[in-house]
């Protein structure tokens, strides 16, 4: 093992504007970064800092990594000025992967909000790549407005996949929107799978995660079957620096995906 703080170089080979403030960066790292769905990468914006992001591409695709990123702070603000051909840095992968072997034979109920669909896409692609291993895949996704939906151009293709069931909602509709209106929990009044046996996977803003988790528990999902992407200040990615401590966990090492059973005793885990 060499210097664990040193990133490798990655070239931005394409960018896709998903929404006015969310962009997908397609990167070609100088060497393979063998991540598995659920793990994250530390992305260096040279000169501006480093921040953790979960890849949104399939882990079966090794030569490139896609990351869908929302512009929220200093480093991500700077990243949006990077162009195709520019170089960024990558460290990782870090954290725990989704335990896909525990998902086999079960229905998977995925709930995403906003840019939270990005890490869930990596999971979705991993599941659909080997769809025969799993039950049905339900994807419930909510965004603020139709314009804020990420992967708009991919969702119609996903809807055609076998064993996949997708439903979308927006908080505020426009004149073209024909689907549901409301926060993502409005898609959860009827959950078409066996809650006691199914797996739920949730990623989105903390407040959305909180209410989705409550709804899932109410519906009968077991705490050990609810996988949540916890948002903490993951800094080093190595489990060394202490910043991401969430109760007894270093989320960069033990997470960022933790089950409800793991976090339920932590006061306000969704801050």
């Amino acid at each position: 093992m060499g210097n664990i703080f040193q990133p490798i170089s990655a070239e931005i080979i394409k960018t896709i504007d998903e929404t006015p403030n969310i962009r997908t960066f397609v990167l070609r790292p100088e060497q393979e970064v063998p991540f598995l769905a659920g793990q994250f990468i530390e992305l260096t914006m040279p000169g501006y800092g480093e921040a953790p992001f979960t890849p949104s591409s399939s882990h079966f695709k090794r030569d490139i990594i896609e990351m869908t990123i929302m512009k929220v702070g200093r480093a991500t603000g700077a990243l949006f000025d990077f162009k195709v051909g520019d170089t960024v840095g990558i460290r990782g992968p870090y954290g725990a992967r989704y335990p896909l072997e525990k998902f086999e034979g079960r229905d998977i109920y995925i709930v995403g909000g906003g840019v939270g669909l990005a890490p869930l896409r990596a999971l979705f692609l991993a599941l659909t790549h080997e769809i025969d291993k799993y039950g049905r895949i339900f994807l419930r996704y909510g965004a603020r407005t139709p314009d804020d939906i990420v992967y708009k151009y991919l969702i119609p293709e996903w809807e055609k996949m076998k064993k996949v069931d997708i439903d979308l909602s927006v908080d505020v509709r426009d004149e073209r929107w024909m689907k549901k209106v409301g926060v993502v929990t409005c898609l959860m009044d009827e959950i078409p799978c066996d809650e006691a046996k199914s797996i739920a996977v949730v990623c989105g803003p903390p407040i959305m995660m909180k209410f989705v988790t409550m709804k899932l528990l109410e519906a009968g999902f077991k705490g050990e079957h609810i996988y949540l992407s916890m948002e903490t200040n993951m800094s080093c990615g190595l489990g060394h620096c202490g910043h991401c401590k969430l109760g007894p966990y270093f989320t960069c090492k033990d997470g960022p995906v933790l089950t409800w059973d793991q976090v339920k005793d932590i006061p306000d885990p969704f801050v």
């Binding site: 260096t44 000169g47 620096c241 202490g242 910043h243």
Partner: peptide, 17 residues
């Protein structure tokens, strides 16, 4: 106490951590 902070600053065409 083992906590640390990593911070980057711009240097030439790249960064120093």
């Amino acid at each position: 106490c083992y906590c640390f902070l990593l911070y980057d600053k711009a240097k030439d065409q790249g960064m120093e951590r």
